[in-house]
Amino acid sequence: MGSKEQLFKYLLRLGDNALIQGHRLSEWCSRGPILEEDIALSNLALDNIGRAQAFLQYASEVEGNGHTADDLAYRRSERQYLNFLITELPTGNFAYTITKQLFIAQYDVILFEALCKSTDTTIAGIAAKAIKEARYHASHASDWCLRLGMGTALSHDLLQNEINDIWMFTGEMFEMTELDKDLVQFGISPDLTILQNIWLDKVGSVLIKSGIQLPGQGYQQTGSQQGIHTEHLGHILSEMQYLQRAYPDATW
């Protein structure tokens, strides 16, 4: 068993990743390139928000000071968020969103597969549920990579550009912080260095099939696990938290 604070912090990471990713995907609602894709992206957003709810609910129980999942989602400030930088990057064009989806959904599949075996049974239970959804997300992103990569010269170049641009935010997902090192000992979370190799294989094989070149090792931006975010997170929170900040305790 890790300490209560460590488990709480880890659950915030899992919950915040899903929450911010879900919020970004929800920005596509009514703006999708075609109707079916609009529905698909909104479905992906919904799955993520459900996952955020489950993890933040558990986080609030572990914290044990009367906060609810909603308090954690709507009453914290930027520095208290532990989502990876990649999730808060702007929605951008469709190829940009698909690139983020490919990187994040493949990560989720591998992470949840590992978390199904977590010694924390609540985390294992949520992971067993979430992985079923994550597999559909990864398949959706892979399909679109193929279509964009093997489509027109324009779609290919756009995708290659976005892959090159976002690559510097992928390393952070596998950063072994002090928290990770501790939780691995207790069997709560997996060794991320092992996950990184599996992820590189999976993402690499989709990109090769799509005619896209894998970026080489380069500078990797980190910071989120110390609460240091890009300039984008503050803007997300100002929108996402507006209602609870303007009308505290508002309910349906």
Partner: peptide, 29 residues
């Protein structure tokens, strides 16, 4: 159980006319 890849290659019968000539439009409905 779920298998996104298997779902894509499955032949799904139309519930209206029972034809097996059907096409997947989107995995998210």
């Amino acid at each position: 159980t779920c298998d996104a890849a298997k779902d894509k290659s499955s032949i799904v019968e139309c519930p209206q006319c029972f034809s097996t000539k059907t096409t997947l439009i989107s995995q998210f409905g």
